[in-house]
């Protein structure tokens, strides 16, 4: 049976990243699933990882893995690969995992596929291109382990009710791999639900005209109560709103019950991050905007007029 590993990011309190549980759910359908968790919280995450299908968790709580970028993790993962010879390693498409996967590839010479949306078998994966209008099957060849970076929310996490054996990782990290140091962490504390978890996402693009108008989106989100504010890359690049709100290829992937796009054109790179929403509402003054092709309800008009009216309507219906 194929040995399928999931490279797992954990927070210091032992909570595995939601994407790790999604990937384990897929991994156990492909073979014997195991997890590798590196950094503070790793050991404590073993129970949750086991409950989602990991038979073994290779764990180290050593802060070297979070204090120093990518090199220690790639080094330890490579040592584990040499020892245990997995057939496939799944990574979530996050900034940190992507870095580790890229470095590991240099050492193993294996195929590394990015942006996968499905894994068919340990040597065949799928990706969506052109905003999801085409599916491409990619065969992975050459030395094992094959490496695949999977877009978040490609699979639903389902508990297996299992338990994992915990194997401590004892790999020496040489001093020369500690040259990139993380000195400070700055996290924006947003009120309300997280973008990836919100039931409604109210997103704005360049059509909102001005950074100040994002206040209307925040007001709508607050009126809805279970909503988060998203944004296109154009407005993030323009500095109207922080990057943590960006939806799309280089930003977050969201799958809310409803996605409302105000003044967003619907570029392919935006669409890949939100097309999984159950319902899509688009407000755009250009009747030919590509976003209308995937909208369940499209409103042709000025977002700045629709927004205040909608805020009032939502407030009225929620009392």
């Amino acid at each position: 049976m194929a040995k399928v590993w999931v490279f797992t990011e954990v927070s210091a309190d032992g909570t595995p990243a939601p994407s790790a549980l999604e990937l384990l759910t897929k991994a156990r359908s492909l073979g014997d699933a195991e997890a590798v968790a590196l950094g503070p919280g790793a050991t404590a995450s073993a129970a949750a990882l086991g409950a989602h299908g990991a038979s073994t968790v290779h764990a180290s709580d050593d802060p070297v893995f979070t204090d120093h970028l990518s090199q220690p993790a790639a080094h330890a993962l490579h040592a584990l690969v040499e020892r245990h010879r997995p057939n496939l390693i799944l990574f979530a498409s996050t900034h940190d995992s992507r870095d580790v996967a890229g470095r590991l590839q240099a050492r193993t010479g294996s195929a590394l596929m990015s942006n996968a949306t499905d894994v068919v078998s340990p040597d065949l994966a799928r990706t969506a291109i052109a905003g999801g209008s085409q599916l491409v099957d990619v065969a992975l060849e050459g030395p094992v382990p094959r490496l695949i970076l999977v877009r978040p929310k490609s699979f639903a996490a389902e508990p297996s009710g299992g338990t994992a054996a915990m194997v401590p990782v004892d790999v020496e990290i040489p001093e020369e791999l500690r040259r990139a140091r993380r000195l400070e962490r700055h996290e924006e504390t947003a009120s309300g639900p997280k973008l990836e978890e919100a039931r409604v996402v109210v997103a704005g693009g360049r059509g909102l005209q001005d950074a100040q108008n994002f206040a209307l989106l925040h007001e709508l989100a607050a009126a809805l109560g279970n909503a988060a504010v998203g944004a296109s890359r154009a407005v993030v690049d323009a500095g109207w709103i922080a990057y943590s709100h960006q939806v799309g290829q280089t930003g977050k992937t969201v799958k809310p019950e409803v996605y409302l796009a105000f003044g967003i054109s619907g570029a392919l790179q935006h669409v890949v991050g939100m097309k999984g929403a159950k319902r899509i509402v688009a407000i755009n003054k250009d009747p030919d905007a590509p976003i209308f092709r995937l909208a369940d309800l499209g409103v042709v008009g000025d977002a700045l007029q629709v927004l205040p009216a909608l805020i009032a309507e939502v407030k009225a219906r929620r009392v």
């Binding site: 596929m113 099957d137 060849e141």
Partner: peptide, 8 residues
């Protein structure tokens, strides 16, 4: 090491 084998 990787090859597109189908597009749909």
């Amino acid at each position: 090491t990787q090859r597109v084998v189908a597009v749909e």
